[in-house]
């Protein structure tokens, strides 16, 4: 079977886009007619998640934790409050937990039952995170999935998979790359990728942005 990067595989032949488009249009127009929705509210919501929220928020949290040991301590103790200090919180980040990667442990996050993801710090999830292959495989064969993402870990390191099945939302605090002493938070932020905060990546090496 040829796999293409859609949600699961190419389904367009089974459900023509025009049909689903019509269904959504019909739903919206009926709800609008019944005065149950405010289309301007929909536009505002879409704008927020499409343009204003994203992994830069999470990168800011990570860079601050790398720079400020007291902030890091607060973040690991009460992530929701520490993240709120930077102005982030709300829908799908109401109750946060930050898990720290160390020399001994590598953390990686999934939601096997649906696609739960920390929106205020990472924005909306990438398609692969919501896909059946990731949700099925990362729990049973985390090391081979991580290798496909370019993350190869020593066998001695513990891989700890977090299934976010309840209403806690998880953010991985990646290990700080070497040779970044004295860097500003703004510089450090550039090393923090979205995947590093899910656990399917590591922070970029210092050389990548020098």
């Amino acid at each position: 079977m040829k796999h293409t990067p859609t949600d699961y595989h190419d389904h367009e032949h089974t459900e023509p886009p025009s049909d689903i488009e019509l269904r959504v249009k019909a739903l919206e127009s009926i709800l609008q007619e019944k005065q149950l929705i405010d289309p301007a509210a929909l536009d505002a919501l879409i704008d927020i998640y499409e343009h204003k929220v994203g992994p830069r928020n999470g990168a800011q949290v990570v860079a601050k934790a790398w720079s400020d040991p007291q902030y890091k301590q607060r973040l690991l103790q009460d992530a929701t409050a520490a993240i709120a200090e930077l102005g982030f919180g709300g829908v799908q980040g109401e109750d946060m937990l930050v898990v720290e990667n160390t020399a001994a442990v590598h953390n990686v996050v999934v939601c096997t039952l649906c696609s739960c993801y920390p929106w205020p710090t990472l924005g909306l999830p990438p398609i692969w995170y919501k896909s059946a292959p990731y949700r099925s495989r990362i729990v049973i064969e985390p090391r081979s999935v991580l290798a496909e993402f370019g993350v190869t870990l020593a066998p001695s390191k513990e891989v700890r998979v977090w299934d976010s099945n309840a209403e806690l939302r998880y953010l991985v605090l990646p290990e700080r790359p070497v040779d970044t002493e004295g860097w500003s938070e703004a510089q450090l932020m550039k090393l923090v990728t979205r995947n590093a905060m899910i656990g399917t990546g590591l922070a970029l090496p210092a050389g990548d942005i020098r």
Binding site: I37, D38, A41, D43, A44, G90, V91, E94, D95, A166
Partner: peptide, 17 residues
């Protein structure tokens, strides 16, 4: 009805379980 004015409040507050 979720109005435009209430959107930022909903997004910022969410609904904790």
């Amino acid at each position: 009805v979720l109005t435009e004015e209430f959107v930022p409040i909903l997004v910022k507050t969410g609904a904790s379980a």
